[in-house]
């Protein structure tokens, strides 16, 4: 059996203009591997939304993407304030984003619901004052 491919990225909160570089790199890799375009699109959107969240809501973190024979697993771990009410955060339109985040084009309250929509499975584990871990899987 072939080994799974694993890619790791550090997401810095320092530079908003660089947010999305990890997602863009994953997208390129998936395309190069010949992954179907619909899957590439779903993974790209889900990962990019997650990466943006790590920059605008948290203090950065780490992304690990694993490609197995039958799915793509994305693990996003941030160091940040955590999510006080996950159920609310999953509602379309609900957002705790500041005006400065909205001015950057994010914080419409669509991020987490869209991440769930784009993935086949999504789990959120969050601790207030420590950070959030989101695991998403997209089947191949």
């Amino acid at each position: 059996m072939e080994d799974n491919l694993v890619f790791e990225y550090v997401v810095s909160r320092e530079d908003f203009t660089r947010a999305g570089e990890a997602s863009a790199d994953v997208k390129k890799k998936l395309k190069a591997l010949g992954v179907p375009s619909g899957v590439v699109r779903r993974v790209s959107i889900a990962l990019y939304e997650g990466e943006i969240n790590m920059v605008v809501h948290a203090y950065g973190g780490n992304i690990t993407v694993e490609i197995t024979s039958d799915k793509i697993i994305m693990l996003l771990k941030d160091k940040g304030p955590g999510i006080p009410d996950v159920e609310k955060a999953m509602q379309e339109g609900f957002s705790t984003a500041s005006d400065s985040v909205r001015a950057l084009g994010f914080g419409a309250g669509m991020g987490l619901p869209n991440m769930k929509k784009c993935s086949d499975r999504m789990d959120i584990s969050t601790t207030i004052g420590v950070g959030t871990e989101i695991k998403m899987e997209v089947d191949l």
Binding site: I45, Y48, E49, G105, G107, M110, P113, N114, K117
Partner: peptide, 9 residues
């Protein structure tokens, strides 16, 4: 849209 989250959705 001016909101990229909406565009992505």
């Amino acid at each position: 849209s001016d909101m990229m989250s909406d565009v992505l959705a």
